[in-house]
């Protein structure tokens, strides 16, 4: 593990102790580096999880003084609640669509940028702009853009001779409108990562492939994609993790409506805890959600690290 150092044997007791201390410190040196972060994480992340888990086995509200133990009552209640199941389904769909959408757009833009030679640095900056806005403001800005009477989108549509739309009001379009805005906001993150990934690719394999007369598509599929695999997985993982937590954007754009089509788990849990004062049900709902997310991330990790190891 380390390259060092012979300590001369010292005969005294304190010397033996020091030597032991030294050996120990060498053997467990990594814990000195990890411990501060780990302790912080224990406080800021594990404590909340343990707390929520605890809540979910009791009956707790903000205004309760007694907290009877109810075992799985809250879990049963949440699993029986159609609203919860609908919100779960919505969330899975939301994560799938927004992550793949942001990925396709972000990767596409990164590839496109390589064909552009003028003002590339400034382009990069402009392309990153949506990432710099707070999600809540992004949602509000698009509310304003999509307003049925005053929004620019309808103004443009009618200018082009198309019928105006009520994006956020119709059960058929609200979902997709919110997802598109999410993609608009987050594709820059994927773009940033993929752009960096592309700029770090080696040249040699491309040159030899071109000499062999391979088509662009073949080169992309056979060389670019495999080389970028770890980067792609990093980007996907990071985005998936965050997409599950989406709250602000949906909250201000539709608040779950119309007719519950855009309700996500975060919204549901917020309502249950803070509006309906059912802390323990929210706790049970989050535990189930955490389990599902954990499984999904474990699968993604296996792919990611299998790949890195092979590398």
């Amino acid at each position: 593990m380390t390259a060092s150092t012979e300590v001369k044997p010292v005969a005294t007791e304190t010397g033996a102790f020091r030597r032991w201390l030294y050996r120990m410190s060498q053997k467990y040196v990594h814990w000195f580096f990890i411990a501060p972060a780990l302790i912080a994480v224990l406080v800021v992340a594990i404590y909340p999880i343990v707390y929520s888990t605890g809540l979910s086995f009791f009956r707790v509200t903000f205004d309760s003084r007694e907290r009877p133990f109810v075992l799985f009552e809250n879990f049963a209640w949440v699993l029986n609640d159609t609203d919860y199941r609908v919100a779960f389904g919505n969330t899975l769909l939301y994560v799938f669509v927004t992550v793949s959408g942001a990925f396709i757009l972000g990767f596409g833009v990164a590839l496109l940028l390589r064909r552009i030679t003028v003002g590339r640095n400034w382009l990069r900056l402009v392309l990153l702009l949506p990432l710099t806005i707070a999600p809540i403001v992004v949602g509000l800005t698009w509310n304003w853009m999509l307003d049925p009477l005053f929004g620019l989108i309808n103004w443009i549509l009618t200018g082009l001779g198309l019928p105006p739309q009520t994006w956020l009001a119709s059960t058929s379009t609200a979902r997709i409108a919110v997802m598109l805005v999410d993609i608009w906001q987050w594709y820059p993150l994927i773009f940033l990562i993929m752009d960096a990934g592309l700029s770090g690719l080696p040249r040699a394999p491309y040159e030899s492939a071109r000499l062999e007369g391979a088509s662009e598509w073949t080169i992309f599929r056979r060389i670019t994609l495999p080389l970028l695999r770890p980067v792609i997985l990093v980007a996907l993982l990071l985005r998936t993790v965050d997409a599950f937590r989406t709250f602000d954007l949906v909250r201000v754009m539709t608040d779950g409506g119309p007719a519950y089509t855009t309700e996500t788990l975060s919204l549901y849990l917020y309502r249950t805890a803070f509006n309906f004062n059912k802390l323990s049900r929210a706790g049970a709902g989050s535990m189930i959600m955490l389990l599902v997310i954990g499984v999904i991330s474990a699968i993604m990790f296996r792919y990611l690290y299998r790949d890195v190891e092979r590398h």
Binding site: P148, L149, F150, T166, L168, A169, A174, T254, G257, P258
Partner: peptide, 21 residues
């Protein structure tokens, strides 16, 4: 009622009236 009513809250209905719609 104006299109989009299914999503209107206080802000939007107020806005519609104050803008003469």
């Amino acid at each position: 009622q104006p299109p989009g009513r299914e999503s209107f809250q206080f802000g939007e209905v107020l806005q519609n009236f104050t803008q003469g719609k």
